[in-house]
Structure formats: structure tokens, C-alpha cells
Simulated assay, not measured.
Amino acid sequence: MPTGIAIRDVREQLFDAAERILLRDGPNALTSRAVTTEAGCAKGVLHRHFADFDAFLADFVLDRIHRMDPQAAALRESAGTGTVAGNLTDALIALFGSVAVAIVPLVTFRDELRDRLRETWPAGVPVLTDACVMIASYLTAEQELGRIAADAEVDMLAPMLIGAAHLLFADRKGPPPEAETVHKTVTSVIGGVAREA
């Protein structure tokens, strides 16, 4: 890109480029050069806006996590409607159909990124821990409505659902699992505590 031409929303442009690379080519392909080439800008643009590449990646991961907030709110608001298994199935498909599944290996692949994220995110893999909070919040709402057993341990069910779904979606190269497969997994996990008619 010629010098002197302003790039609008440069952070978002760089984050979108990083997401495309991550989804298309995986975490190994994610370099500052690849990001700026994909974004169509000079390499120096990234370094003018971020201290280093790991700072960029940390902000990218946190930005994508915050994009889950509307999904979390929608899931919680769905409590009492449809079926618990159906709502969870839809939420897990949306979660793992997004960049979330690709962020997990990125975070585990880069020690420097994990260290940087620890400054603001104390434990766990950010996308997965946020997803667990989202699922636990929903299950708690359903528990309050009597559609999940009162003695169900929602803080244990949430990571079980996230872990099981992550295993279904972990193969980036193959096709995503069918909705029926995800639904069957969900019903297996919550079958003992679901109280729907």
C-alpha cells in the first residue's frame, strides 16, 4: 500500500486477516508478514499499532472472545424456550463453527502468547473458559426454570459439553460434524439431569 494513504479501522482489518489465515491455513501459517500481506498493507503497519506480534495476537484473541458476548446473551435468553439439548446444540455449533476452534491450537502453540494472555486472563485457554462460563450461565438459568435438575452440577457439565464438542470439531481438515451428532453428544452429557417433558 502506498505511503501516506490512511487505512481505516486498521486493527479490525489486521484481525480479520489473521482470522482468515488461521481458519484457512492454521496457526503455523500465522506470521506478521502473512497477516499484513493478507490485509494488503505494509508490514510496518502492524508494528506501528502493536508492540510486537505476540501483543497483536493477544489483542486478536481477546477481540474474538468478546465477539462471543452476544452469543452468550442470546443463549441465556433462550432459557425456557425450545429444548435444552437443542439450544445447547445450536450454541456449540455456532461456537465451534467460528474462529474459536482455531484459536485453541494457536494459544497452545505459542508460549509467548500464553504468557501475554496471562496478564489479563488468569487461567485456562481464553476461548474455552469463556465458553464454559457461557454454557454454565445458560444451564443455571434452565436450572432455575426446573428444566435442569436442581442438584445438577452445572459448573461440571459446562466443561464436559465444551470438551466433548471440541473433540467433535477438532479436525480442521475434515468436514464439521453433523448437527445430529452434536445433538446426540449433548443429550448424552445432560441426559441424567434434563427435566423436560
Results as ranks from 00 to 15, higher is better:
Arg110Met: 11
Val101Tyr: 01
Val99Thr: 11
Ile162Ala: 07
Leu128Arg: 12
Gly163Met: 07
Glu153Lys: 05
Arg116Glu: 13
Glu112Tyr: 01
Pro176Ala: 15
Glu178Ile: 09
Ile93Gly: 00
Ser137Pro: 02
Pro126Val: 06
Ala141Cys: 12
Asp151Leu: 09
Leu168Cys: 12
Arg147Lys: 05
Ala179Leu: 02
Asp171Gly: 10
Asp111Phe: 13
Ala102Arg: 12
Gly174Trp: 07
Thr140Gln: 05
Ser98His: 11
Phe109Lys: 15
Ala136Arg: 13
Ala85Ser: 00
Ser137Glu: 13
Pro105Phe: 03
Ala91Arg: 06
Gly97Arg: 01
Pro175Trp: 10
His166Ala: 15
Thr83Pro: 04
Pro122Leu: 12
Pro126Leu: 04
Arg118Asn: 11
Ala141His: 03
Gln143Phe: 01
Cys132Glu: 10
Phe109Gly: 10
Leu139Trp: 00
Thr83Phe: 04
Trp121Cys: 14
Val127Pro: 10
Leu157His: 05
Arg118Lys: 13
Val84Ser: 03
Asp111Met: 14
Asp90Cys: 10
Lys173Phe: 14
Pro176Phe: 05
Ala91Val: 01
Gln143Pro: 09
Asn87Gly: 06
Glu153His: 06
Ala85Arg: 02
Ala179Asp: 06
Glu112Phe: 03
Thr108Lys: 14
Glu180Pro: 03
Glu142Trp: 06
Ile103Pro: 02
Leu139Lys: 02
Val154Cys: 07
Ile93Tyr: 04
Ala141Asp: 11
Pro175Thr: 15
Leu161Arg: 09
Glu180Met: 01
Ile162Phe: 08
Asn87Ala: 08
Pro105Cys: 12
Trp121Lys: 13
Val101Ala: 09
Ala150Asn: 13
Asp111Trp: 07
Thr108Glu: 13
Gln143His: 07
Ala164Pro: 01
Arg172Cys: 00
Leu167Glu: 12
Asp130Gly: 12
Ala149Pro: 13
Thr89Gln: 03
Phe96Ser: 08
Tyr138Ile: 09
Ala150Gln: 15
Val154Thr: 12
Met134Tyr: 04
Ser137Thr: 14
Ile103Asn: 00
Pro176Leu: 14
Ser98Lys: 11
Glu178Cys: 07
Arg172Asp: 07
Leu161Trp: 01
Gly163Pro: 06
Leu167Ser: 11
Glu144Tyr: 09
Gly86Ile: 11
Cys132Gln: 08
Thr140Ala: 03
Thr83Tyr: 06
Glu112Asp: 15
Thr89Phe: 04
Phe96Pro: 08
Pro159Gly: 09
Gln143Arg: 13
Ala150Arg: 15
Leu106Cys: 09
Lys173Pro: 02
Gly163Val: 08
Pro105Lys: 12
Met160Asn: 10
Gly124Thr: 12
Val127Tyr: 06
Pro126Thr: 00
Ala170Lys: 11
Glu119His: 13
Leu145Gly: 10
Leu161Gln: 02
Val107Met: 08
Ala150Tyr: 05
Trp121His: 15
Ile148Trp: 05
Trp121Phe: 15
Leu139Asn: 04
Asp90Lys: 07
Thr108Arg: 15
Leu88Gly: 03
Pro122Gly: 11
Ala91Trp: 00
Ala158Gln: 06
Val127Arg: 02
Leu92Pro: 13
His166Val: 06
Asp115Phe: 12
Gln143Ile: 02
Glu112Arg: 15
Val133Phe: 00
Ala150Phe: 10
Ala165Phe: 03
Arg172Trp: 03
Pro159Arg: 10
Glu153Thr: 05
Val127Gly: 05
Thr140Glu: 04
Leu157Asn: 07
Arg110Ser: 14
Thr83Lys: 00
Leu157Arg: 00
Gly82Val: 00
Asp130Met: 10
Val133Ser: 11
